[in-house]
Amino acid sequence: MTRTTATTPHDSKRNDRITGVVGLVLLGALLLFQLSDLGGAFGNFNAWWIFAKPVPAGDDYAKATVWAESPAYYAGPVRSITVAMAIRRASAVRDFTTVAPEERYLLWADTSVAYPKISEPGLYDWFDALDANSVRSVAYDPVLPDALIARWESENRMWELPWDVVIVGGDVRENPVVVLHTNADRSVIYVVPSSLSPEGEGR
């Protein structure tokens, strides 16, 4: 038996129209079903958004380190970044120099004392990489007298950053040289303008 599939232009147009409507209904259903997934955001957000969670770090690299991936594991790098950002903020000029103790470990305490939750509190080469110009290593005792810290505190000169890093000097930001210090138990790193530091600009 012979079958014919010949159609008139009118039939063809009608078929196309029906195909179009069927396709649109099916496509619309798929898109709608997919969109309904947005509802998950209002239920269990953590199950809906399993990616890295959005955080309000803004334009603040030091603050961003607080929510960094595995901060305990990367304690050295995140603290180094925070110190470097503190130095940059303390020195609005771009050609600044940082004075740091020759023996860097003098800036932090024994791990078990100061940072029981993290393994490596020290500054890494990350710190040097983020320093725009140079880190001048000088032999000095970076520990500040308690009285001096208390005086700066009373003068509201302290600007605290995460990871126990403190900028001294408030909004005075025209310092081409900053000096790194710590407190008696070596748990806090102070970024001090050379004009305020007992070390001056270093020897």
Binding site: A52, A57, G58, W67, A68, E69, N133
Partner: peptide, 30 residues
């Protein structure tokens, strides 16, 4: 900017952001 939100993992905070500092400060390409 007002909202200030971002999401990042190690690649973001420890590489894209970090490695761009030596580039802008010294023209150094790590």
């Amino acid at each position: 900017t007002r909202w200030g939100i971002s999401a990042y993992s190690l690649d973001g905070w420890a590489q894209y952001e970090f490695l761009s500092y030596p580039l802008s400060d010294k023209g150094e390409v790590a």
